[in-house]
Design a protein around this nucleic acid. Structure first.
Lengths: 143, 143
DNA sequence: TTATGAATGCAATTGTGTTGCAAAGATTGA
DNA sequence: TCAATCTTTGCAACACAATTGCATTCATAA
């Protein structure tokens, strides 16, 4: 079993069960944010609620964050190493309307707008939609 | 029946049926964005799928826009008079985590970030979460 | 008036998220 | 080492929003 995985779990104080190791492995291999149903399909035979609770645990311990990308299902992605899921760690996400993948733009912080009098900021969800670089390339290749 | 309502429908080329007049009336009275289940509750006896299709029609004809506010259900709100639901008309929405209302900040356009090479912008959904002015007032009153 | 298309109402289905509960597994203290 | 306890997992069931099929009703135009 990959050493990286156990260390990542340990650093977030998550008990490294076999299931959690497997889920984290999938999350690390997957370059884009993944939904619960998608995660389910990555396993031959795994229980939905176990995966669900695994993701919840990961999220509570700030190993992953979730994105409401408007596809109807929440998507989850690994946090950066020093992410503590505070406003400073919020970043833009990009949903490709062609391949339906959701990218984390970790290096692109969400701009915090000046709110009207009396409104108090807590968090934000910023999803840009369009065509990703990969799909763009494909669509212009045979042209 | 309110003259405003018929004119609004007419200007968007929507046939003014009784149902549509009623739904638009509710949308105009409601100051915040409303979801399909919420809309359903505004009527004694109205069919879900009719309301659903009414909202779809309104949206296709750019009378209303939808927000994915992360509450699990899409919310709909009236567009500004000259809105054509293009990128220029995109604006920030605010979800109050206390009263669960979603506000349109029509005067606050969504900042369009510089995307990485090859990514193409189409649309965006920007939802700020926090405490709204109304809830803030309430919570500091008896203090 | 009749033929046509649009709108509505009802029932059923899909898909995602969530919970209850019992079994299995891990941990701790005697 | 064993028993008691807590955690995790697997299965079943449920809640809820969104969506579709189909028959009926309604509006419109020939």
């Amino acid at each position: 079993m990959n050493k990286d995985i156990d260390e990542k779990l340990k650093s977030k104080k998550i008990k490294p069960t076999a299931m959690r190791q497997l889920v984290l492995e999938v999350l690390m291999e997957h370059k884009t944010a993944i939904s619960l149903p998608e995660l389910e399909q990555k396993f031959e035979r795994a229980d939905k609620s176990t995966l669900y609770r695994t993701l919840k645990t990961f999220q509570e311990n700030e190993l992953i964050h979730s994105v409401e990308d408007g596809t109807g299902s929440l998507r989850y992605a690994l946090c950066d190493d020093f992410c503590t899921c505070e406003p400073k760690d919020l970043h833009v996400h990009f949903l490709c309307t062609k391949c339906n993948k959701t990218y984390c733009f970790h290096e692109m912080p969400i701009p915090i707008p000046e709110l009207p009098e009396g409104f108090e900021f807590e968090s934000a969800n910023f999803v840009v939609k369009g065509i990703c670089a990969n799909c763009r390339k494909k669509s212009t290749k045979n042209h």
